[in-house]
Amino acid sequence: GYYIQMSEGNKRSYVSKRRQQNAEETRRRILASARRLIVSKGFGGAKIEEIANEAGVAVQTVYSVFGSKRGILLELHDHLAAEADLTALQAALAAAEGNPPQQLRERIAFNMRYYARGADLIEAARSASGVDQGLQEMWERGEARRLERFAELVAKWDRDDVLVPGLNRDEAVDIWWALVSPDMYRLLVLERKWDEKRFADWVFGKLAQLLFG
């Protein structure tokens, strides 16, 4: 009886694991399909039926996994942060405690990873902002999150009294907002063809001087 129970337990565990892997693969396929269609057609032009068809799943599957097209878009946005390794950023910031320039470098490195992986989707959201409600929402959500996260870091530096004398928090955040923006990345890396290391080093040099003196 013991061996039969063990065997049945292993089988259930195996089936459960396979089911989970299949669900994750389905999710990935839907996200990849949605991303291609949203980038090429815009949020409004990408239909759930097309997304499902390209992903090789039923329309109902898309709805059951994401709830709505907006749900897909928000997950795509969160997926970019995961791909850029937000967890690694948080660990790196903690490890660089007491070393503001290194924390600045780590923050810039995260943004570079984020922009490199999401350039197509970010550009679609930027260019459609104000026209396409779904993409505008994604753009605003991304920019608000970028602002909030850096504002937290600036507030800490301000409390530790490491900012340039006379530089207030809001101004420090605004300087970051402008220099480490998807727009600046697009202008210098995508359009002027700077390599990413050159861009990251340039941004760090400017910001370190403006923030810390």
Rank of each mutant, 00 (worst) to 15 (best):
A119C: 07
M138P: 00
L121S: 02
A124V: 11
W177V: 11
F150S: 00
L188A: 03
R126S: 14
A128E: 14
R169T: 03
D161F: 12
D161T: 09
W176A: 03
R141H: 14
V164E: 11
A144H: 13
A124Y: 10
A178N: 07
E148M: 12
D158E: 12
V164R: 15
V164H: 02
M138T: 05
V162A: 06
V131D: 03
L179A: 05
R169E: 02
P165H: 05
D158I: 00
V131K: 07
V162C: 10
Q133G: 07
G134H: 08
R146F: 15
M138K: 00
R192V: 02
F150D: 00
S181P: 14
L167G: 01
A151I: 01
D161H: 14
D158C: 03
A119R: 11
M138W: 01
L147H: 14
D160T: 05
A144Q: 13
A119D: 05
I175W: 11
I122M: 12
S129L: 04
L167Y: 03
E137A: 11
L163C: 02
Q136S: 15
D183P: 02
G130M: 05
I122T: 14
W176F: 15
D160W: 04
K156S: 03
A155L: 14
E148Q: 13
S127H: 14
V189Y: 08
D174V: 04
E137R: 03
V180N: 06
M184E: 08
L167A: 04
R149F: 12
V131T: 09
I175D: 04
R169A: 01
V189P: 10
R159T: 13
R159F: 11
L163A: 00
A172R: 01
L163V: 02
A151N: 08
A144K: 08
W139G: 01
G134L: 04
S129N: 14
M184V: 12
R169N: 00
E123H: 10
W177G: 09
A119H: 07
D120K: 11
G166P: 07
D120A: 13
L167F: 05
A151E: 15
L187D: 08
K193H: 13
D174Q: 09
W139T: 00
R146C: 13
W139I: 00
L121D: 08
D158Y: 09
R149V: 09
Q136H: 04
R159Y: 03
D174I: 02
D160L: 08
D158M: 05
P182L: 09
R146I: 05
W139K: 03
W176K: 08
G134F: 01
E148K: 05
R169V: 06
K193A: 15
A151R: 14
L188K: 10
E143C: 01
R159A: 15
L167S: 03
D158G: 03
R145C: 05
I122V: 15
V162K: 02
R141S: 14
M184A: 13
L163H: 00
R126N: 08
A172F: 02
I122C: 13
L190K: 06
R126P: 11
E171I: 02
W176C: 06
V164M: 10
S129E: 11
D160H: 08
